[in-house]
């Protein structure tokens, strides 16, 4: 499969980036307006690379992913920022262009495969839909492609399965169907919002294996939203850590895991249960993510941080601490703090 033809005039500072999110700020409007649900989010997804977006629930990672897909809830408004995909700003390009990009060059996989598939449509029709919309294929050609795609995502007896309905399949198979539908438009980027969270552990591994194969074979870039650090270590090249609507750290996965440059990242890493530390208490991060609207000034993590100092009440700028390694902790950036890996 070849990549769909697309304009590739990217801005100079993000050369090589397929997707770049810059200064994305989202507000909740309506009932109880809450500004800064997501604030100043910046990251890039280079061509063919896999980037993880991690953080606790309520950190804004799913909202960020939905903003990329243009699927923000009605009550959430984009205040500023741009989301440039292959030279097109998805936030300003208009519905027509957005329709062309979604399901075509940008595919999406969601968390719950069962509810992400239309229960009244055969899986064959749902996979063929992207082909029919984006390549204007006829019923028969699209169906043949759908069969190939089912084969490609490892569903046995693909020809017969084309006419199955989603409820006739297991969760793992449904997620394979979702992936087939996402790659049907020959995307260059797949946004996967917790694609394995709803699945059994053994199936999770299979689905990740499938995504890895597809990445390699199709040269896909993947933006993976997850809170599973094991998945990140296993699957991703780069990691973007979000906390309370801020990107607190972004780095190549290896650097983030070895030398985390933000206390939140190191606390997250510390709270992964480890078999080589059996019978020791599990590290946790005390408290919970503050609800939007009651974020503290300055560093948003400071109320839960072990290393809080007066300087943390000041706004924390995004600072480069290594090659491709950014942090939003001023004390780490200034060299006054080395969070390391908390054990």
């Amino acid at each position: 499969m070849t990549a769909a033809p697309l304009a590739t005039g990217t801005a100079p500072d993000t050369a090589g980036a397929l997707l770049s999110v810059r200064g994305l700020t989202l507000d909740l409007v309506g009932g109880t307006p809450q500004p800064g649900l997501v604030q100043g989010v910046e990251f890039t997804v280079p061509k063919g690379r896999s980037v993880a977006l991690i953080g606790e629930s309520g950190c804004g990672k799913t909202l960020t992913a939905m903003a990329i897909l243009g699927l923000l809830p009605r009550a959430v408004r984009v205040v500023s920022g741009e989301i440039v995909f292959a030279g097109t700003d998805l936030l300003t390009c208009g519905p027509r262009e957005l329709r062309r990009i979604r399901g075509g060059p940008v595919g999406a996989v969601f968390q719950e495969p069962m509810s992400s598939l239309n229960p009244t449509m055969t899986v064959g029709d749902q996979i063929a839909e992207a082909r029919r919309i984006h390549f204007r294929e006829g019923r028969r050609t699209a169906r043949e492609h759908a069969r190939e795609l089912l084969d490609r995502v490892g569903i046995p007896d693909a020809r017969r399965r084309l006419d199955s309905y989603p409820h006739e399949m297991s969760g793992g198979m449904q997620q394979r169907v979702m992936i087939a539908a996402a790659i049907a438009g020959e995307p260059r980027l797949v946004v996967a919002d917790e694609p394995t969270t709803a699945l059994d552990v053994t199936i999770q591994a299979e689905i990740l294996e499938l995504l890895r194969d597809l990445r390699r074979d199709l040269g896909l870039a993947v933006l993976l939203v997850t809170h599973d650090l094991g998945v990140v270590a296993d699957f991703c090249d780069e990691v973007v850590v979000m906390y309370a609507g801020h990107v607190v750290e972004r780095a190549p996965v290896r650097d983030a895991f070895r030398t985390p440059a933000h206390p939140y990242t190191s606390a997250l890493l510390g709270s992964v249960p480890r078999s080589d530390h059996a019978r020791t208490p599990l590290q946790v991060i005390g408290g919970r993510v503050p609800p939007a609207g009651s974020f503290p000034g300055g560093c948003r993590f400071q109320p839960r941080c072990r290393h809080t100092a007066p300087a943390c009440a000041e706004p924390q700028p995004d600072t480069v601490v290594g090659s491709g390694h950014h942090t939003r902790c001023g004390r780490v950036a200034a060299g006054g703090l080395q969070p390391g890996r908390e054990l």
Binding site: L69, R99, G103, G107, L117, N118, M121, I133
Partner: peptide, 22 residues
């Protein structure tokens, strides 16, 4: 409100197609 309507949108369906087909 169902996710499959969202994923239909994410696949590039127009509003009309989403309404009648999904």
């Amino acid at each position: 409100e169902e996710t499959f309507v969202e994923s239909a949108t994410a696949i590039g369906c127009s509003t009309r197609r989403t309404l009648w087909v999904h």
